[in-house]
Simulated assay, not measured.
Amino acid sequence: MAELGASDAIIDGEAFVVDQKACRAFPVFSGFLAAAGDVRTMLAGFDLLKIDGEGLRERPLVDRRKALVNLLRRRPNGIVLSDEISGGSDILAQVCQFGLDGIVSKLRVSPYRSGRRQEWVRQNAC
């Protein structure tokens, strides 16, 4: 927490590893870690649910992302900010080329709700 400059925080994200060949999403690399040598485990943060005791779940995604950008401005070791992207089906092809399994599309005005929602759509890339 000291590296983030916060007393507490809940970051929603996805773990991944980076090696010399590619990025791999968490479900893909659980067995890979045991056999690998030079890998780095990272967290791609895409939402901020709580900061310094304040719950942010009811705020729109756009506000939570601004707070997340602010939190990660110090570039903490092992945590990166996920990119916000827009576009068509070509994005899924690019995501697949990077070795990632897909993207999640969210309405910028939506509050955070656990579980699957109509406001959040997961699209597999490969």
Rank of each mutant, 00 (worst) to 15 (best):
M1A: 13
A2S: 13
L4P: 00
A6R: 12
A9F: 02
I10M: 05
E14Y: 03
E14W: 04
F16W: 05
V17D: 02
D19N: 12
K21E: 11
A22W: 06
F26E: 14
P27D: 08
L33V: 12
A34H: 15
A34Y: 14
G37F: 04
G37D: 12
D38T: 08
T41P: 11
L43K: 01
A44H: 04
A44E: 04
A44I: 05
F46P: 11
F46I: 07
L49Y: 00
G53D: 03
G53V: 02
E58Y: 00
R64Q: 06
A67K: 10
L68Y: 02
L71Q: 03
L72T: 04
L72P: 02
R75E: 14
P76K: 08
N77M: 06
G78K: 07
I79S: 02
I79F: 06
I79H: 07
V80M: 10
L81N: 03
L81E: 11
D83Y: 11
Q94F: 10
V95Q: 11
V95R: 05
Q97C: 06
F98C: 15
F98E: 14
G99N: 06
G99E: 07
D101A: 10
G102D: 06
V104L: 10
S105G: 07
L107R: 13
L107E: 13
V109E: 14
P111M: 04
Y112L: 02
R113E: 12
Q118G: 08
Q118M: 08
Q118P: 03
V121Q: 14
R122K: 15
Q123V: 15
N124G: 10
A125Q: 02
